[in-house]
Amino acid sequence: MMRNKALAAPFVLWAMIFIVVPLVMIVWYGVTIEEPIPYTEIVQPDGSVIYQLEDGSRTTEKPWQKRAVFSLNNFRRMLEPTYLRLLLRSLKVAVITTAICLLLGYPVALILTGRDFKRPALWLLLLILPMWMNFLLRTYSWMSILENSGILNSWIARLREAIPALDEWLLSMGVRRRIIFLYNENAVILGMVYNYLSFMIMPIYTVIEKIDKSLLEAAADLGASPVKSFLRVTLPYSLPGVLEGITMVFVPAVTTFVISQLMGGGKVPLIGDIIQNQFGKSSDWHFGATLSLLVMVVVLAFMGALGRIDKDDEPHKEVRIL
């Protein structure tokens, strides 16, 4: 019989190296900063300078190495208003995105599980299919629809030419001929709703679909109006799906850095953009790690608030199958 440990050991080792150690690295980088290694200059009798390091070793070249030392400076920096404002904006955008996704997505799941569509699963598949096109491309495609000389604006222009009264009314309302859709917070939210909407629809659909239809029939038989049976049966039973959907939308929304760059044109930086910058242009890995820690804490706090941690282990008997 294969030993249990022989099977578990490689997997546990793998999980340690690729899940635990990387997270420990983030913590380590987050609580340290880099500083030049300390040395003392010693002037020799012949006028040349040698450098003595702390461990007593000497070199003739000026030490250039840096070392990591423990410091909470980056935490202090993180709490500066600039970064707090970015975090708040990220949270705001993510909350709005999640709310819109829920408002748009719940009815979709509800309608598809109803009696209107003969092949609900196929319709669901059609709703999910766009996700197979690279999300950067889809977002980029939105830009070409929304840009100043884009399709939407040219359609609006044509409509206004055709109906002068509408044009005059809109002008009097202060709506310009070329509406600027892109490069603001609303554009970023649109991009996020577009990319994450199916994350909301899927879990809600799965849960509503599993609701025992006889419960609804019973509610109707007992005289409940459709609205009441929705409120008393469908809604409570669908809550787990709603929570799952909220998580699946909120977490990527609060941390994205691509959608904000494309749809926001760099004018609406979010916390994810700043993290990305720390590992690219400004290259301060330590501060980047501190910000990553912040994001991690925010996400975990959010999940904790929704009660979504440690829920996957259903009880089962301990059995040996290998």
């Binding site: 990387p22 690295m25 990553s292 996957d312």
Partner: peptide, 27 residues
């Protein structure tokens, strides 16, 4: 131990992609 390991394995799914990416890069 199963529950402990399951929580560890679930971490990358709980975490955002940015954190996963950054942590692997640091590794």
């Amino acid at each position: 131990p199963r529950q402990a390991m399951l929580s560890v394995v679930n971490l990358p799914m709980l975490n955002s992609e940015v954190v996963t990416g950054v942590s692997l890069m640091l590794l």
